[in-house]
Design a protein around this nucleic acid. Sequence first.
DNA 1: AGACTGTCAATTGTCGACAATCCGCATAAC
DNA 2: GTTATGCGGATTGTCGACAATTGACAGTCT
Lengths: 223, 223
Amino acid sequence: MFMTVNTTDLVTQIARQIAEAIVTGKLKPGARLTELQLSRSFGTSRAPVREAARLLESQGLVVSSPRRGFFVRTLTAADLRDIYELRIGLELHAADLAVDRAGPDDIAGLERQIETLYRLADEDSIESQIFEDFIFHRMLCAASGNARLLKVYDGLAMELRAGITLIGKLYDDPHRIAETHVPILDALKDRDRAALREALHYHIIAAQEAVVTLFEDIERDDA
Amino acid sequence: MFMTVNTTDLVTQIARQIAEAIVTGKLKPGARLTELQLSRSFGTSRAPVREAARLLESQGLVVSSPRRGFFVRTLTAADLRDIYELRIGLELHAADLAVDRAGPDDIAGLERQIETLYRLADEDSIESQIFEDFIFHRMLCAASGNARLLKVYDGLAMELRAGITLIGKLYDDPHRIAETHVPILDALKDRDRAALREALHYHIIAAQEAVVTLFEDIERDDA
DNA sequence: AGACTGTCAATTGTCGACAATCCGCATAAC
DNA sequence: GTTATGCGGATTGTCGACAATTGACAGTCT
């Protein structure tokens, strides 16, 4: 019995590296992606790089303008507001479905994830917390049992991560992040639809508020 | 004052043609997309075709497996169930937002669209009706004022169209399609959130039921 | 001085070619 | 009769090269 040989497509590999560079902020918003330069850094020709760039474009991480090339996408405050607003609809729907479908392993996974968040609040950087926060919500979407919904969530999360890395901190007390997830999980355990919607809604709105106002301030400074 | 010269990217052009062939059924689900063959038919080389295929892959119209090539995506009954289920969440959320944000022009547009549906019920083929049905729901999503939500809807609609063209008819009476949209618009006019959700939910569930059972029958025959 | 125009380097869009790999088929082995 | 093996054509993955276009800079004209 052999595992499928981990010969991840070169294109996929390149796309992943570029995406990594974008979400970690190594490639700043608006930065130009020169094909030749990228292909040199990967030791390949331009063809796979172009295909990878097209892939990332469809994921919303980069934009392209004909005859001018690819650029790292810049998110505006309005973009972020839309994304969060959509995320609310998406996760509320996922939660509704999860109330009926979430199994013991889903619950257990969410529980462990909250523990992880608490642990990171003590020891680690804010970046890992944000990342693990996304994982928690991803697990919730996965518990909906709807693969397509999860895919859309992943797309939104990717875009958000690209915009959010620049942000230092959202809460004063790092434990707040972990704490705000507890009522969500509790409501799911109780199979209490109304409480779950309420907790989730509040949670995401809070994040939206923090992120959007922060971006609005940045845009005001730029102008 | 000059219009921006309509020099749509070659890649985009090719992608559009392939997409057209897929949604109209000229390229059947599971069919292989041979790069050389396609490039010949377009009079180009393989490079733009590959990029176009990657684009369509990210839109879910085609799938690729390394070293084997690109194939027209085949939708299973489970896929369709997921898509419709997600669509419910998406459109309900859009409706919620539209209740607050829909302007007179949005309402007027929806009204005209229902008239179009009635007209097509009398004179035209079922295909145009299905297409215009999508347009109606797209207008509803547009009325949400959330560009990202609209984009996701477009993605889902594209996939659905690819799967649905094969279907002959969904209702016995072609006027039924038009009629079922009336309560949706009425509820939106009244700004009645509950009624709107209810009408929309019922409407989509009905379509889901029809399409999914149809596909389940097809799959049973195949097996 | 300021606006316009022509040139030039840099970059993208596209192409054809070559090597690596996969699929189907015929053949052979059990 | 069924499974394994090995070939051959077809197809993909990747590459380097060339033409077309862009943006910037310098030089010129008013």
